[in-house]
Computed example of a mutant assay.
Amino acid sequence: MTADAALFAACVGAPAVVVAMPAEAQPFLELASEVGTVPQPVGGAQLSALVLDGSPVLLVRTGIGLVNAASAVTAALERFEPSAVVSAGSCGGLRSDVNVGDLVVGTEFRYTDADATAFGYAPGQVPGMPEAYRASTELVAAAASLAARQGHALWRGTMLSGGSFVTAENVGATRELFPEALSTDMESTALAQVCHSHGRPFLALRSISDLCGPAADQQFHMELDVVARISATAVAEVLRGLPRSAGV
């Protein structure tokens, strides 16, 4: 067995970390003590075998968007049966009191643009599915020890995802429908739905890179590599606190 094959074999049953973009994957590659030399392609996605803090971790780079995220994590679930799935990387700040650089621990997940309200479903609810997908209580508890970085807040609450980028021009309706939502991205809710369907524990730990309609005194953008490191460091800390069997 080659070294790469052995690393991937060790990832069976290990946690999976899911990111959309190469810049969001890079901090995990830098934190790892071992990285497989040849990633496995899955459609347009890429699976990499890592060792973080002495334990195997499967890194899944999906590409941007709901369908890319769902198809890639489904393939990862079928091939590696991960014990847990964590969505990492960047997100847009939605609620008016969040700021760039803040870390968001997602506890429930909804779609911004799913609308079957004419048939009695809640805003953001896909027919036949829950109103919201909930994070694993065990993984949320594992994130309880996270501390806010100096100058930035740590939030826990609702994250949204959709197929459209939320901007200052279109944020009004989203805030009206989901006043409690902290952030928005284009992958996490799709990942949560797939994990719900497969009975796998799920958590999202993302850092805010831009604001969807900032106030006049707010910084509205932070470089992607900076927020990617914030997210990756938090994810590594949470994974470090899990049992070595990674069973959650």
Rank of each mutant, 00 (worst) to 15 (best):
Q40T: 14
A14H: 08
S188E: 07
S87P: 02
A142H: 09
P214E: 08
D53S: 15
L146G: 04
R240Y: 09
T167C: 04
A32Y: 06
A84I: 00
P27H: 04
A192N: 06
A69W: 00
D210H: 08
L77N: 03
G93N: 08
S55P: 00
A3T: 12
A9Y: 02
A72E: 07
T107G: 09
A118M: 05
P201Q: 01
F202Q: 10
H196S: 09
G199V: 09
P27M: 06
F8Y: 15
E81G: 13
S145E: 14
S145M: 15
A70I: 03
A88C: 07
R229M: 00
C91T: 02
T107L: 06
P243A: 09
A84L: 00
V60T: 06
A135S: 13
A75Y: 00
Q26S: 07
L103I: 04
A181T: 13
L50K: 05
Q26V: 07
L50G: 04
A168H: 12
Y121S: 04
M21G: 02
E187W: 07
L94P: 04
G101E: 01
M21C: 08
F8M: 11
R134S: 14
A122R: 10
D53C: 13
A45T: 04
P127I: 03
R156K: 14
R95H: 08
T167W: 04
S145H: 15
A204C: 11
A49D: 03
R240Q: 15
G128P: 06
L139M: 10
T137Q: 07
A234H: 10
G163L: 02
L50H: 05
Y111N: 02
V238G: 03
T158F: 04
G241M: 10
S136H: 00
L242A: 02
G36Y: 06
S71M: 09
N99R: 15
V67K: 04
C195G: 07
P22A: 03
E169H: 12
P22D: 01
S145T: 15
A232K: 05
E223H: 15
V104F: 12
R206K: 15
T189Q: 06
F109A: 11
P214G: 07
T174Q: 00
G124K: 07
I64W: 03
F202K: 05
H196F: 12
T184G: 14
S136M: 01
V73P: 03
F119R: 03
N68H: 14
F220R: 14
L52K: 11
V104L: 13
P15R: 05
G92H: 11
R134W: 12
Q26E: 13
S209Q: 01
E176V: 08
V19H: 00
F220I: 09
P56S: 03
G151D: 01
L211V: 13
Q40K: 15
G63E: 07
R149D: 10
T117R: 13
D225C: 10
A25D: 02
P201F: 01
S183M: 13
G92E: 13
R156A: 15
A5G: 14
V57K: 12
E138S: 13
D185E: 09
A10L: 09
P27F: 06
E138T: 14
V171F: 05
D217E: 12
A76M: 01
D217L: 11
V42N: 06
A173Q: 10
S55C: 09
A25S: 11
L203W: 00
A232S: 06
Q150W: 05
S231T: 01
